[in-house]
Nucleic acid binder design. Sequence first.
DNA 1: TTGGAAAGTCAACAACACTGCCCTATCAAG
DNA 2: CTTGATAGGGCAGTGTTGTTGACTTTCCAA
Lengths: 170, 170
Amino acid sequence: MAETMRVHTLMGEDLLFLTDDKLRRGIEAMFFAYRAFTADPDLILAGLDYGRAHHRALHFIHRDPGLTVTALLDVLGVTKQSLNRVLRTLIEDGLVESRVGRRDRRERHLHLTEKGAALERRLSEAQRARMRQAYRAAGPQAVAGFRQVLEAMMDPETRAQYQSMKDLPE
Amino acid sequence: MAETMRVHTLMGEDLLFLTDDKLRRGIEAMFFAYRAFTADPDLILAGLDYGRAHHRALHFIHRDPGLTVTALLDVLGVTKQSLNRVLRTLIEDGLVESRVGRRDRRERHLHLTEKGAALERRLSEAQRARMRQAYRAAGPQAVAGFRQVLEAMMDPETRAQYQSMKDLPE
DNA sequence: TTGGAAAGTCAACAACACTGCCCTATCAAG
DNA sequence: CTTGATAGGGCAGTGTTGTTGACTTTCCAA
C-alpha cells in the first residue's frame, strides 16, 4: 500500500508499469497462460493414467540422465513420498530405469528407457509447439523480456539452480 | 521435428530463439516461476483451511462484483461441482455473499463481504509484491515482452476473454 | 403449459500434494 | 568395528482440487 502510494506520487513516466492494476493484469495473464501451458500435455497424459507429476519427472530425467533421486527431489520441490509414488509407476511400467550407484551404492541413478524417451518426446513436443507458436508471434525481443521477468519472479535459490542448469546438446 | 529442421536450415540470425533448447528453457522458466508465483498466497491460505481455488474465486469476484456463478465458472474453467464446493465454504464462512438476481431470479450474483474483501486484499498484496519486485528488476520493456508472450500462449477464446476484461478503477 | 436454462446437490473417484513414522542399505568417521 | 548420518523406499492417513454422472428445484420464455 505504501509501495503503491510512492509509485503514484513519483509517477516517473516509466513507473506506470508498477501500478496495482498493471500488476493484477500480469497476475491474471500468468494464470491463464499457465493453464494453456499445461493443457496439451495433460490431454496426452489423461489417456495413459499418468499426470503432470509424471511429465515433470520424465522431463528432468531426460534433461539430466543419471541424476539421483535426491537431485530430482530437489529440482521438483516435492516430498520424497510424493515423488516415490510417481517414480514407482514409471519404473514398473518400464519408462524409467533405476541403476544402483557405482561410487555410492546407496544412490539410485535415473535413466529413461526407449519407451520413456518416446513419451517424453511426445509430451514435450506438444508443449514446445505451443511455446514455439507464442515465441514466433511475440518475437525475439518479447521473448527476452518474458524470460527476464520469469527469472526475476523465482525464489533466489531456484533461480540459481535454473541458471546453472546445463544446456542440452540438441 | 520438421519444424525444428526448417529453423536450423533457415537460421535467419533472429530465428535462433525458436531452437528446441531455447523453447525448453522457456518451459522450465514457466514451471519454476509459476511455483514461486503461487507460493506466497499458498502460505497464507494454508493456515486458513483454504486453497488456491478459494483464492481464485475471491480474485475474480473482487474484480467483477455481482458476476453470476456461470460467468465465474467460465473464467475459472472448472466444473460446476468443483466450484460449488469452494463457493459453499466461502459463503458459509461469510466471505462471499450470493444474491438472487433481480431481473432473472435463477441467477446468483456474487459479492465479497467486508471480511472476504479483507482476505482478498491480503492474498493479492502478497502476490503483487512478488510481481512488483520482478517487474521492477526486469524493467518496462521486459514487462511488455512478458505480457506479449503470455497472451500469445493462451487459447484464443481465453485470450479474447482476458483482453475484454475491464480495467479495475484503482 | 411446457421445454429448457440456471443453479445447486449428492455420491464416487482420482491425482497429487502433505505429515509422521518406520525400515534397510550403505558410507564415513571415530 | 561401532556409531551416526545419508540415500532410498514404504505404509498409513489426510486434504485440496479436480473429474463424471445422476438428480432436483427454480423459474423464464415461447
